[in-house]
Design a protein around this nucleic acid. Sequence first.
DNA 1: GTAGGGTTAG
Length: 721
Amino acid sequence: MAAPLSSITDILFTDTKRTRFTTNTNTNTATTNSNPNPLKPKTLRKKFPIYCTTSKSTPEAASTTTKKNPSLSEQLTPLANKTLSTSIGIQPNVLSKPKSTWVNPTKPKRSVLSHQRQKRAPYSYTPQLRDFQLFAQKINECGNSDDEFSDMVKEIPHTLTRENALLVLNSLKPWPKTHMFLHWMRTQNLIPMETIFYNVTMKSLRFGRQFQLIEELAHQMFDDGIELDNITYSTIISCAKKCNLFDKAVYWFERMYKTGLMPDEVTYSAILDVYAKLGKVQEVINLYERGRATGWKPDPITFSVLGKMFGEAGDYDGIRYVLQEMKSIGVQPNLVVYNTLLEAMGKAGKPGFARSLFEEMIESGVEPNEKTLTAVIKIYGKARWSRDALELWERMKENGWPMDFILYNTLLNMCADVGLVEEAETLFKDMKQSEHTKPDSYSYTAMLNIYGSEGDVDSAMELFEEMSRLGIQLNVMGCTCLIQCLGKAMEFDDLVRVFDVAIERGVKPDDRLCGSLLSVLSLSQGSKDDEEKVLSCLRKANPKLVAFIQLIVDEETRFEAVKEEFKVIMSNASVEVRRPFCNCLIDICRNKDLQERAHELLYLGTLFGLYPGLHNKTNSEWCLDVRSLSVGAALTALEEWMWTLTKIVQREEALPEFFLAQTGTGVHKFAQGLNISFASHLKKLAAPFNPSEEKAGCFVATREDLIYWVRSKFSSAAVAT
DNA sequence: GTAGGGTTAG
């Protein structure tokens, strides 16, 4: 055996002269809205200055810059100072681009992986094949107790040889049998124990996710002096990975180095995947580039690992880097690589590039499978690219490309995303008539989503009854869609019935369902009776939220109290519902003519970072972007803006040339109307904004318009008094 | 599942 190497960490630390990369692996600041830990403003005026600050930072953003302990990634960073990236200028965005690369030509870099895969010793089948197959089958069928096994194993048909031992181990399916047989072989001492026996057994144990037993076997091998090879280690590592024991995977990888065994590319890519799944992007890049620098030509599986990792990180540059690396090394992507990269493009939010990649894949002669099509359909749906989605669907049918259950449901979801009702109905019918792809709870949910968004209460309720009849579980999302639909249709009795049935059947209300009830509440204008019906549901789902509503609709409640409770409510709500919650609460207040409270809530929402980018300023243009606001919130924001602009005009402060209010046009077929309400409110305020001729969903005003409007408003006010 | 590594929904 070779002289023991130092650990991989030690190896990676050698010869470091300069840091090539910076570690800022986590540029994703999704935490902006989480854990509101608000500032305590020194003074609170009755008017809340939402637009007066140009700072983009939110209180939370300021408070979440805690320093983490140095990660392994930070420790490993220096190793990558002199690698031979073959890419032409594309680097994953986790990397900074170094200006120079230091290379010491006299000191070749120590290899981190063997370029030769471990050779497999061929073994021939036993002449007593049939007898041993029957023997293994009998063991497979007997009980799992030691006694039963002992009885069965006595019936071994011939002398145990290496070949027939392997045959039996390979034929034993349930892991306890493989495990017992190996143990039996070891204690009987009929033939010398070999690595391959352990490897085969470990593989069986991996199927059963028996990491602990695998580890015991590995220790036994050490004790008995049986060599652990690359196959042993890669099996141990992949089992640890399968059991989510990533620290164990890393431990065994390091242990391999310490015993002097060099990983081959199978083990190496297995450990790359471990680091990737741990989100340790920098380590993966370091290990990859270190391997490349020593002449390794990675195979498609490695690129699939890298592609998946960059997809999870939403790192588009990383994905391009993978494609570029493959191209320059001359590795042709296979089906799995394409599928992984397509999925990654979707996660990185690049539908256009996903489409090009998909076409490139077809052109290169790689036939798409179900996973490919699922990925692409999903991307088109999320992007609301109905034309592309429909075209692809046609091609799928024309070419007879494979369909499976997941693809069916993905198609249904896509229909919901882009608003294709009839197409969804056809698909749903197809599924019902099929043998193997019968609609399940999620297929029904997709249909409920479609009917719900369309406001087709009758069809939605018909589905609801059908689900009850067929015993298909209503899940929380289906329930949310139904509630939304019934609420919009003002069918409050059915709404309560559906809610109660759902709870009875075990649906656990989540924040989205509460948000849905909240939005229904904001719609139940006028009728105290209806309002109480919705509140009764909401009280069961989130009593604190109901208490908060009662607090804010009481005009006597002081702002400070609202602020404190607002903080509690939003902290307890999941990030994705915080803005919708705030939107609904504003709507509820406006419906009750509590305009001042609505303005307070908008202020609090802004303070807590729920409306980033609501107001954008450049030198030439100020823009109010209300696309993520509800109608009530958008109108409140508009009033607030006009008030602020009025002040600025009166103070004769600097103003840009143009003003822009952006409502969007409601790309989603089911979500339109904000621009219409907004336009009518502009009219009501007699504000000088007009629909933009160039850009739909935008209202524009010039500085002159605005100044004129302010002056005339105040001169007429003066006349009136 | 040929002793080892990579890809699908909500």
